[in-house]
Write a protein that binds this DNA or RNA. Structure first.
Length: 196
DNA sequence: TTATGGATCTTCT
DNA sequence: GAAGATCCATAAA
């Protein structure tokens, strides 16, 4: 499969805009000479203002510093001591905002994803933010890298952009929980929760 | 089918 | 010292 990488321009725009534009795009992971990939089907926006669920709400810290890097940087963090989550950083340098990738539809090299996940069930390979990191072997060594200019982790153009976008409240947070900043592809069976 | 608790550790208070 | 952008196994209904 040939991948048409998204370059730096793609990431210019508001965080909500980028969140919606990321749906249907392909997340590509290269390990040695093998490509693993999946279509993005569910995302959440985390803003720099009036969003107390965002890691950036308390200002710059050692953990969240990638969120303040330029749009198109990766932000990978450890949650609950055991799981990694992957975000696409948005907005200009110095502004802390990002889009959490919550679910993928597996495409290339599903066999390798299954072995990283330790399951044969394709439906639970990448239908959650920590699951997709495990399936693509995304860890903190990939935090803070430029997605528009990296070989091991990048984004690519998707083929079919014919889908309807659903917009709901975000999952698993306790602050700013009523903001409608979750977006997912209507009808896609790899969405993590509340599928239509 | 829904509810609950354990795993496990970095970050900030 | 407590909380956290999750997942999974197990128990209850």
């Amino acid at each position: 499969m040939k991948y048409n990488r998204l370059d730096r321009d793609f990431f210019e725009g508001s965080t909500e805009e980028i969140a919606k534009k990321l749906l249907g795009k392909i997340l590509v992971r290269k390990i040695d000479s093998q490509f693993l990939s999946g279509k993005i089907v569910e995302v959440e926006a985390y803003l720099n203002e009036n969003d107390f669920a965002s890691h950036s709400a308390g200002g710059l810290s050692q953990r969240n510093k990638s969120m303040f890097m330029p749009a198109g940087t990766s932000y990978v963090y450890l949650i609950y001591g055991i799981h990694y989550c992957f975000n696409v950083v948005t907005e200009k340098e110095g502004i802390g905002a990002a889009v959490l990738i919550r679910a993928l539809e597996p495409l290339d090299n599903i066999a390798l994803m299954k072995s990283f996940r330790g399951t044969d069930n394709i439906k639970i390979l990448t239908n959650g933010p920590a699951k997709l990191c495990q399936a693509l072997n995304i860890k903190r060594n990939l935090d803070g890298i430029p997605l528009y200019n990296s070989r091991e982790l990048f984004l690519a153009e998707g083929d079919n952009q014919n889908f309807e976008i659903m917009n709901t409240k975000r999952i698993g947070i306790s602050k700013s929980k009523d903001l409608l900043l979750r977006y997912f592809i209507k009808g896609n069976e790899f969405v993590s929760k509340g599928k239509i």
